[in-house]
Write a protein that binds this DNA or RNA. Structure first.
Lengths: 309, 309
DNA sequence: GGCGAGACCCAAGCGATACTTATGGCGTGG
DNA sequence: CCACGCCATAAGTATCGCTTGGGTCTCGCC
């Protein structure tokens, strides 16, 4: 049952004649006639009776016409659905982002995207970079916002981040700042830069594995090994510990944008390498309009930062 | 939205890979790949993401797959329906037949057909030949059982029976018999043939227009003009009048097979031309299996008359 | 760690399919 | 009665679609 012939048959039935169908199709009459002939041969029964003023459907023709109409309706619906997706009247983007981004730039980008394409549905799942990459690989997310410590030239060992088939584009840097208790001797005079070497005797609070590694590397370059007393991924917990004088730590600016505890002071440390922010998605995912639009919204939020709050 | 490509896409989705779809289709891999590429080009969005172990559907692909499944289901249902019609598991024949046939041979043929093909639905509409031909021409009947008076060589004027595009095949002859009251002098001695000339003084009861014309022609050849007193199409009415001695008449054997009044006698008249029975249908209607089967059942009932009651 | 297997893409060639052209039959209406 | 509309058939041609023979990439296996 060749569906193309079925649609030609539908035109014959609608026009009431083979020549009429040929006109609406922009074909010649024998072309339509041959389609009908082959269709009747496969069917094993006459589908129309040739009458002087055109053709008349047989019982088989009437039944076939119902199916043809149903097929045509489905094809039209499919085209409509695809059109809605390509023109962003519909669509879904499953976004995975790490916590401090999920609290700051991602909501801003989602708002921007929602204004541009109200029909596009963005679903956020908060996930640290390694987990976000797993979600991408498993097909459970379309787009991930990740970060990596160290400057752009200092990339970590391949194999962990180098998921095959994923493209990772840097979209900005997030400076790493020193967080101290307000009562700390170096908490005042925000203009004067802090030398990391002056903090060799401090007790430290580290974050996740990769953040702790970044801390150790920075301290190592400053000539000491940090005395890490506590560890937590959560930047609210980190600041609560710092505010109580239980240690000091490094936090990226995005985390501090999301939340800064009243009892802490924030200072810049020259030479401290920022973390790099990335958008990651499967290689061909940028051919999905909704993903492309989400990428654009995130870039517009991050790169020129025209109206980000 | 090319439906053929849509079905290829369904195979890709089902197999989970382009190469797998190619295997089930018996094609090479690039063939399937090209179909997918064109489909994605027309769609304006990626339908699958190429992954190491095959492909993974995007949102657009998942939606398209639903439509593809629906189309495939419809196509399969269409093929099934056509198969049922061609193999006579289903089907409808709208039959038009004149009254005396409708009471005799048509029920027998319908019974025969019902035994051969229980799924075929025959719908009988009783109609005199001119009306039956109108039903055929209007497409409201598929097959007509008609008759024409006069031997096969003596056909009436064209234009009335010569409906264009209709084929008329003779399927038997129906002798015309003389019907007398039992009290009539010539009612006895059934073996002796009756000479029409001996009935010149009788009062006659005529049937329909064409039957009356047939009567007049037969009497004219016998050398007299019949004294027609009454007229009716109904062979029961005719016999009621005859039984009461109100006239005599000619009736075909089929009518007498359907009903013979107790008060009448039936005699053969040598030289009286029988009426010819015909099956009529549109030229191509014999390419409709159900019609062909109905024609065959009617012929089997009429021609060798193996088990006709 | 190099290397084959599997999956995919691209470009080019060829063959089958499908549409066109040309012609004739049939029925209807001016 | 002839001209027109509708349909069928046959042959030609052009397009589409599948194959062939390259290549890249990832994974898994020695």
């Amino acid at each position: 049952m060749d569906p193309h012939r079925l649609l030609v048959f539908r035109e014959i039935a609608r026009a009431g004649s083979i020549a009429g169908a040929a006109r609406t199709l922009g074909w010649t009459q024998p072309a339509v006639s041959q389609h009908l002939r082959l269709l009747e041969r496969r069917a094993g029964t006459a589908l129309v009776l040739r009458r002087p003023r055109g053709v008349q459907l047989t019982e088989a023709g009437r039944i076939l016409l119902e199916h043809a109409e149903a097929v045509a309706t489905r094809l039209s619906a499919a085209a409509d659905d695809l059109d809605a997706l390509t023109h962003l009247r519909e669509g879904t983007v499953r976004l995975a982002a790490f916590p401090s981004a999920s609290a700051t730039i991602v909501p801003a980008a989602m708002s921007l995207l929602g204004g541009r394409h109200p029909g596009v549905d963005v679903r956020l799942r908060e996930a640290e970079p390694p987990e976000a990459l797993k979600l991408l690989a498993a097909g459970e997310a379309d787009l991930a916002v990740t970060f990596a410590h160290g400057g752009r030239e200092l990339q970590e060992h391949p194999g962990s981040e180098e998921h095959p088939g994923m493209v990772r584009t840097p979209v900005g840097e997030d400076p790493v700042l020193l967080v101290l208790p307000r009562s700390h001797p170096q908490a005042g005079s925000a203009d004067r830069p802090v030398d990391l070497r002056s903090l060799a005797a401090e007790r430290w609070i580290a974050g996740c594995e990769r953040c702790a590694a970044s801390l150790r590397r920075a301290c190592g370059e400053a000539g000491f090994v940090p005395d890490v007393r506590h560890g937590t991924d959560d930047y609210v917990v980190t600041q609560a510990l710092i505010a109580r004088g239980l240690g000091i730590g490094l936090l990226p600016r995005l985390a501090l944008d999301a939340f800064t505890a009243p009892g802490v002071a924030v200072r810049a440390v020259p030479g401290l390498r920022p973390r790099t922010l990335y958008l990651v998605h499967p290689r061909e995912a940028d051919r999905i309009p909704a993903v492309r639009a989400a990428v654009q919204a995130l870039r517009d939020t991050l790169i020129p930062a025209p109206g980000a709050p």
